[in-house]
Simulated scan of single mutants.
Amino acid sequence: MHVLFVIDPLPGLKAWKDSSVAIMRSLAARGHAFSFAGMGDLFVDQGRVRVAATAMRLRGDADWMGHGWWTQDADARDCDLTEFDAVLMRKDPPFDMEYVYATHLFDYAQAQGARVFNAGSAIRNHPEKLAITEFAQYTAPTLVSRDMARLRAFHAQQGDVIVKPLDGMGGSGIFRLQPGEPNLGAILESLTELGTRTIMAQRYIPEIAQGDKRVLIIGGEPVPFALARIPLQGETRGNLAAGGRGVARPLSAHDLELARAVGSRLAGRGLLLIGLDVIGDYITEINVTSPTCFVEITEQTGFDVAGRFVDALQQALGAV
Rank of each mutant, 00 (worst) to 15 (best):
137 Q>A: 14
289 T>S: 14
318 G>W: 06
103 T>H: 13
288 V>H: 11
167 D>L: 02
64 W>A: 05
165 P>E: 08
130 L>Y: 00
281 D>E: 11
121 S>Y: 12
309 F>D: 13
288 V>P: 10
239 N>A: 04
41 D>V: 05
154 F>P: 08
112 Q>Y: 07
31 G>V: 02
100 V>Y: 11
300 Q>E: 08
17 K>V: 12
97 M>A: 08
112 Q>P: 09
304 D>I: 05
222 P>G: 14
109 A>I: 07
73 D>R: 11
289 T>V: 13
151 L>I: 06
158 Q>I: 10
168 G>N: 08
236 T>G: 15
75 D>R: 10
160 D>M: 03
251 L>T: 01
67 H>Q: 15
258 L>W: 02
185 G>N: 01
92 D>V: 07
315 Q>I: 03
62 A>V: 00
10 L>H: 03
320 V>M: 00
106 F>D: 04
282 Y>P: 03
242 A>Q: 13
114 A>M: 10
307 G>K: 06
158 Q>V: 11
285 E>N: 08
204 Y>E: 05
54 T>N: 00
176 R>I: 06
316 A>Q: 13
195 G>C: 06
86 A>F: 13
91 K>H: 02
264 S>M: 13
320 V>Y: 00
87 V>H: 01
39 M>I: 15
45 D>E: 14
232 L>G: 12
306 A>K: 05
33 A>M: 06
258 L>Y: 02
98 E>Y: 02
158 Q>E: 15
133 T>G: 00
206 P>V: 02
286 I>T: 02
146 R>C: 14
30 R>P: 09
203 R>G: 14
76 A>S: 12
243 G>P: 13
244 G>M: 12
294 F>R: 01
54 T>P: 00
10 L>S: 06
44 V>E: 14
314 Q>D: 11
301 T>P: 07
185 G>F: 00
46 Q>L: 11
203 R>K: 15
57 R>M: 10
159 G>N: 11
40 G>D: 15
297 I>L: 07
81 L>H: 12
96 D>N: 15
293 C>F: 07
290 S>Q: 14
4 L>G: 03
281 D>P: 10
246 G>N: 02
225 F>Y: 15
151 L>A: 04
222 P>L: 10
128 E>L: 04
243 G>D: 09
285 E>K: 09
297 I>P: 07
135 F>C: 00
272 L>V: 07
